[in-house]
Amino acid sequence: MANMTFSAAIDRAVMEAMAADECVIIMGEDVHMLRSAHYTRFGQQRVFPAPISESSFVGAAVGAAMSGLRPIVEVMLVDFVGVAMDAVLNHMAKIETFSGGKWTCPLVVRTACGGGYGDGGQHEQTLWGMFASIPGLTIVVPSNPADAYGLMKTAIAHDGPVIFLEHKLLSESWLEFLGRLGRQTVAFDVPAAGAQGDVPANMDSLPFGQAIVRRTGNALTIVSLGVGLHRALEAADQLAEHGVDCEVIDLRCLQPLDARTVIESVSKTGRLLVVDEDYKSCGLSGELAAIVLESGLSPHYARVCLEQTIPYARHLEAEALPNTQRIVEAALRLAAGEKQRDV
């Protein structure tokens, strides 16, 4: 058992994979500094600092993966994947299908996401729902160091493309690089249990597509991931004081999505609340509603999502992102709604 930060857990998984397999390489902007330990140990033949040319180096990662390497390509922030979208949407996601399953593309796109430190709407998006809508991609969003470690191990070993999203409020190194920057004058609402934690010594890879019930309850199912999961757990504590007994599920992956765990929980509680830091429309929250409907359930449903371009001002940003208060209010309305109907 080792206690470590979220970012250290990911770095360790990458370090171990690089030591075990010389085909695992890192490429991306500033990786000599961001991954200085990897750069020192494995040198310039394994760690490639890239120019600010996302469309080119993400595209090159696809080619490298198709021809025998196992690249971990770092795009600093998921917002910048916009520049490299063709490589993601039209290439890495499609190679395996286009080749009739005969050619795979084993790469990991490692990228930081999420808001809560006042960097504006072009640097704080999550976008995981958009990626998850594209067949052929695996989308991973861990919420704590152990999961981050295990899922990164699985991602590197996986024979297809994986988008690995690390939330900046969980990743101390990213929060320092983009939000704090040496200042003692700024504060962030960091979920302590997600930013630091134990990684079991014997832990190896963690399979994709396995959601986990973080809290059991009978009245209401809350489904979330990343930082939203921690906000949901905090809300569940408050809701318990209001007599609403919540079950909280951490999805961990959007693609493949563990529908079974969600459906089992909702069939017990009859109420589904989705907490998603991604955009509300046409995304994960609607997808989860569809999945439970398709299973034959008709639960009471609500969602707490991002409904606008993330405003720069921190007080507006705090309202725009799913926060504990919004979750509690939505859950209380959901719980009360059914009671009123019961009467």
């Binding site: 690089m18 030591a19 000599h32 750069y39 020192t40 140990r41 494995f42 040198g43 310039q44 033949q45 394994r46 760690v47």
Partner: peptide
């Protein structure tokens, strides 16, 4: 650390 590049490469980095 054991495993990885040779000493010259490491010093260069």
């Amino acid at each position: 650390a054991p495993r990885g590049s040779g000493p010259v490469t490491r010093i260069k980095s």
